[in-house]
């Protein structure tokens, strides 16, 4: 009786410790750091000094002052465009891989994942040297006689930002999409064919609906990464390369406007959480039906 009670208590203690670790580690390393900038976003900046006076002024600045809201909306628009294109591309590529033999699948998938092993900055520099006025693409087209003089608008334009972001973040969309397809049991497809469905019908009614979680995950990854990127647009976008991430970044240098920077970061975070929530919602609806 006594020993079993002690054992119960020990189990309870162990379980408690486990829970404390499970909750404590994310709390310590994720939640508290994030909460800390939520807190800073309500502080006051006065004469270059950060004062611990609570205010909503930083959020008001976002909605009323100069350029913040328009840049935010532009960046949301850009990220949605990139997301749309990448979801379409990654679905096509994942389907392409899915239809190969198992051994080929791995090889092709790996080759699409290869860019993830390269430094991000090197990829941006490469894209730039491809798109530049004296870049690979222009030189090649000149050499082939397709154009008479270099196309100037390739680099340092909104188009360049769009291309660069789509290329950079495509692997992040392909991977979840492919993994979702890979989980579809082969006999589903066989059954669909046995029941007389054409390959197109199987794709529309079996493969794509079952691949939805992959599409949602790929879309969320692409949107979040694109929306928060403050380096690529600046490097390839020229005078158009000013995005919301850049505005957040600019508040932390010599400007030392941490409260405004934090408020803008909170807005960025809220936007990405909204994207995650929307993706989750779209999946749940599917279940209900």
């Amino acid at each position: 009786m006594n020993t079993s009670l002690r054992r119960d208590r020990q189990d309870l203690l162990r379980a408690g410790l486990g829970h404390a670790l499970n909750l404590g580690l994310p709390l310590l390393f994720v939640v508290i750091p994030i909460l800390s900038f939520v807190v800073v976003s309500f502080w006051t900046l006065q004469d270059g000094q950060i004062l611990l006076i609570p205010t909503l002024a930083n959020y008001r600045t976002f909605f009323t002052d100069g350029s913040y809201l328009p840049v935010y909306l532009q960046t949301v628009g850009l990220s949605l465009q990139v997301t749309l294109v990448n979801v379409a591309l990654s679905t096509a590529i994942a389907l392409f891989i899915f239809r190969r033999t198992p051994r080929m699948r791995f090889l092709i998938l790996m080759s699409f994942m290869l860019p993830l092993f390269m430094s991000y900055i090197i990829k941006v520099y490469s894209i730039r040297s491809i798109l530049g006025q004296r870049g690979l693409l222009n030189e090649a087209m000149l050499g082939l006689g397709l154009i008479d003089q270099p196309i100037e608008a390739l680099l340092f334009s909104r188009t360049a930002i769009f291309i660069a972001l789509a290329v950079l973040y495509l692997p992040y969309a392909i991977l979840p999409m492919y993994l979702a397809l890979d989980r579809i049991p082969a006999n589903y497809l066989a059954a669909s064919a046995d029941l007389g469905a054409t390959p197109i019908q199987t794709l529309r009614d079996v493969v794509l609906p079952l691949g939805r979680p992959g599409i949602a995950a790929g879309a969320v990854f692409t949107f979040i990464l694109t929306f928060g990127d403050f380096v690529t647009p600046q490097m390839v976008g020229g005078t158009q390369g000013f995005t919301f991430g850049r505005i957040v970044f600019s508040q932390f240098g010599l400007a030392l406007n941490w409260p405004l920077g934090s408020a803008l970061a909170v807005i960025l975070l809220a936007t990405t959480l909204l994207a995650v929530a929307l993706a989750g919602l779209s999946l749940r609806r599917e279940h209900v039906r």
């Binding site: 270059g48 000013f242 010599l254 406007n257």
Partner: peptide, 14 residues
Amino acid sequence: DYTRRQAIWNEVKA
């Protein structure tokens, strides 16, 4: 005022 200069520069870039 660094903060002000940054705000104006952001407006130029936007």
